[in-house]
Amino acid sequence: MHEMGIALQIIDIATSAIPAGAPAGCVRQVNIKVGKLSAVVPESLRFCFDIASRETALAGARLEIEEIPVTARCNGCGKHWSVTEPVFSCPACGCGDIRLLSGRELDVTSIEVTD
C-alpha cells in the first residue's frame, strides 16, 4: 500500500550510488531484494518505480526484484526450514520459539550502469 513511498526511497538510495560524472541515463538496472514477509507487492512497486523515476537520473532503468523466501530456525531443536504457509512453529518439534532467518528483506543491493 505504501509502494510509492518505498519506490521513492529506492530512487534516493540508487541515485546516491551513481558514480560522480557518470552520463545521464547510465543506470540500466536497480537490483533489490524483497522478502516474502515484507508488506510490499512487487508488481505495484515496479509500477511506482517506473513512474517515479521518469524525470530522475534513473529514467529508463529497470527495477529487478529478487524475492526472498521466508526461512526459519527452531531455537529448541535447531531445525532449519522454509516457511511456505503462515505457520510459525517448528515442523519437527512443534516448538514456537523460532528465529526468522530471512523473508523480511527490503534492500537495494546494487545498481548496474553502462560501462
Binding site: 529506492i10 551513481i18 533489490i32 527490503l106 534492500d107 537495494v108 546494487s110 545498481i111 548496474e112
Partner: peptide, 10 residues
Amino acid sequence: MEIKVVKRVL
C-alpha cells in the same frame, strides 16, 4: 558495470 549498494530501503 555493477555497483554494490546493500542498503535497507527503510
